[in-house]
């Protein structure tokens, strides 16, 4: 049986104190390594609560590039329907370019045929249901109101009579 040096110095009070001090230092280092998760969990919980409150399941329509929507205080929730986007000089139907607005208004054949196709596919997908005629129009706020009224005329001529003008803000429950 081998005798260790510590065993030989057991009677030395100085050594005992030194060893105890070193152990204490070691313990201190271990305590410093623990992570305090309380604040992080608190922050996560608050974030989750806030985001769950602001969460909405209503359909969201993508605002086309180059379109600045006008502000409104009486807007209602958006319905899911084809989107007719109009920036300063181009017209899009469901994010597909139809053409220059001035050209389309003079010769609306392409727009009309696409609207008819959309209506037919809706009727096929919803057999036995009456066509609601919903369409979302999102136009830049600086576009002339006459352009919008002419577009409305074309669209309503194809049985899309419930026109939803996309606006910013003011969403009220129906």
């Amino acid at each position: 049986m081998a005798i260790g040096s510590s065993a030989l110095n057991t009677g030395n009070f100085e050594h005992v104190l030194l060893n105890r001090n070193q152990r204490g230092k070691r313990r201190g280092k271990v305590l410093q390594a623990t992570l305090m998760l309380t604040s992080m969990v608190d922050m996560f919980s608050m974030l989750v609560c806030f985001m769950l409150q602001t969460f909405s399941s209503t359909p969201e329509i993508l605002v086309a590039k180059g379109v600045t929507l006008p502000d409104s205080i009486t807007g209602k929730t958006v319905k899911e329907a084809p989107v007719l986007s109009l920036n300063k000089d181009e017209l899009f139907l469901d994010q597909k370019l139809i053409g220059k607005t001035a050209v389309v208004l003079k010769k609306p054949d392409q727009l009309v045929s696409k609207l008819i196709d959309l209506r037919k596919s809706w009727v096929k997908a919803h057999p036995g249901e009456a066509f609601g005629g919903d369409i979302n129009v999102q136009a830049d706020k600086d576009v002339s109101s006459v352009v919008i009224s002419q577009l409305m005329g074309i669209v309503s001529g194809q049985h899309y009579s419930a026109i939803q003008l996309a606006v910013l803000g003011g969403v009220q429950a129906e």
């Binding site: 929507l69 979302n136 910013l168």
Partner: peptide, 19 residues
């Protein structure tokens, strides 16, 4: 999940009845 599905721009609609 909530960050991805969050709606940052509130888009509303004004209904126009052409009939």
């Amino acid at each position: 999940f909530l960050l991805i599905s969050a709606v940052w721009i509130q888009v509303g609609a004004l209904e126009i009845k052409q009939s």
